[in-house]
Every structure is written in structure tokens, then in C-alpha cells.
Computed example of a mutant assay.
Amino acid sequence: MQNFLTRGTGTAALAAGLVLAACGSAAAHVTVDAPGAAQGKYTVATFKVPTESDTASTTGLRIIVPNLKSVRTEPMPGWTAKVERNDKGETVAVAWTADPGNAGVGPGQFQRFVLSLGPLPTQDTVNFPAQQTYSDGKVVAWDQPNTGGAEPEHPAPSLTLSAKGGAEGGDHQVASAETPEAGTDSVARWLGGIGLALGLFAAALGLGLVFRSRRS
């Protein structure tokens, strides 16, 4: 009987562990979301930055943008934003730094950094390589392109753009940022639901084996 109980408990723990590991991996990436982003148009892009470290806080973020005509930052209390431009006046990067006295984004937390930007390039996808700086001096580069195979260890935040079309808009006609990271959050909830279902199934299987052992 103890053998069956151990097997059932082990199965449940393994199933839950695998799903939690998958959820943790998906949630740990620096990601970007911009509902309705289209080629040649303006949009609002929301970068979601989680802190992976157990001991240090996120105190800096630098996002590289594809030489855009217009980039504007959203005011963030406790953070200073700097827009970097080339000799043509195009924006090439935006960097945020935690102000003195601001501990940054602590372990187990995340922060959203919002940009109004455009016109977006005329291409199917656009990458925004990022550098995340921690309070202990560590810098993590999120700059690896996704080639369609296995996801890289540090993927660059990426947007899929719809085909150019529709009414012309300026940077005052941008997509709403009220529902950032809807896709990522939905995936996390979906994976969590699978984990719960697998855990319950494994637990029920273990109990069934125990009762069957008692009858025999």
C-alpha cells in the first residue's frame, strides 16, 4: 500500500512541478504587447519586465527600437527615462533608470514600461532587444531572435504587425494600453489550469491505487 501511495504522490508532484516550471519560464521573459499594431502606423507598446533574481532588484531597462521617427515615454514616478537618438534625429533606444531612493522592481515583482512610438517598419515582425540591469550590477540581455524553432534562452521582445492599411494616423491616434500583456497572461492562466487538472488527476490516480491495494 505504501508503494502505491508513494507512486501516486510522486506522479502528482512531478506533474505539478513540470507545469510550474513551464509557467515560470514563460512569465520570466521581458515581453512587449501592442494591440492592433500595424505596419507604417503608430501604437502604444507596453514592455512587461519581471525580476528573475531572488536577491536583487531590477533598477534599469534599455530598449532598442528600429530607428523610429517618434517615440514618447509615459511618466513613471521613481524612474528617469532617456530617449537616445542618432544624427538623423531618429530614436534608436530608450533607457529607464530607477531614481535614488527607489529600490526598483523587487524579487517576485514586475513593472510595465510604456512607449508611444511609430511609424512602425513595413515588415511582418519587429524585435525590441532589451537590457535588464539589476541592483547587484548584473545585466541580462534579451536579444536573441526567435527563428521559429525552439525558443531561445533570452528571446528579444517581439511584435507581430498587421499589414499596412486603414485610416492614416498620427501619434495621437494610438492603440489603447489598458489591456497590456493580455496574450501572455492568458497563456499563464491556461498553463496554470492544465497544471491544476494534472495535479488533481494524479492525486485521484494515487488514491485509486491505494483503495485498490486495500481491497486486494
Score class of each variant (00 low, 15 high):
119 P>H: 08
159 L>Q: 10
162 S>N: 09
67 N>E: 12
150 A>D: 12
67 N>T: 07
111 Q>N: 11
120 L>W: 13
172 H>F: 13
49 V>D: 13
107 P>F: 01
54 D>E: 13
117 L>A: 00
66 P>M: 10
134 Y>R: 01
109 Q>P: 04
104 G>E: 12
58 T>Y: 14
175 A>S: 15
47 F>H: 06
93 A>E: 02
127 N>D: 10
173 Q>N: 14
176 S>D: 14
84 E>M: 12
110 F>P: 00
43 T>N: 06
41 K>L: 08
81 A>G: 01
132 Q>L: 11
124 D>Q: 04
54 D>A: 13
135 S>E: 00
144 Q>K: 08
125 T>Q: 02
91 T>A: 12
167 A>V: 07
158 S>L: 06
97 T>P: 02
134 Y>G: 00
96 W>L: 09
92 V>M: 05
76 M>C: 01
57 S>F: 15
48 K>I: 07
124 D>T: 07
114 V>I: 07
103 A>K: 14
41 K>Q: 11
89 G>P: 02
166 G>S: 03
125 T>S: 05
101 G>C: 05
48 K>R: 15
140 V>S: 04
124 D>L: 06
99 D>W: 14
156 A>D: 09
100 P>E: 11
117 L>Y: 00
163 A>Q: 06
75 P>E: 04
176 S>E: 09
76 M>F: 00
130 A>W: 01
64 I>D: 15
62 R>Q: 15
177 A>N: 07
81 A>L: 02
178 E>L: 13
108 G>E: 09
62 R>W: 13
107 P>G: 02
60 G>C: 12
88 K>F: 06
175 A>L: 12
72 R>N: 07
134 Y>T: 03
102 N>W: 15
51 T>Q: 14
158 S>E: 02
180 P>N: 10
85 R>K: 02
161 L>A: 04
102 N>G: 05
71 V>S: 12
103 A>Q: 15
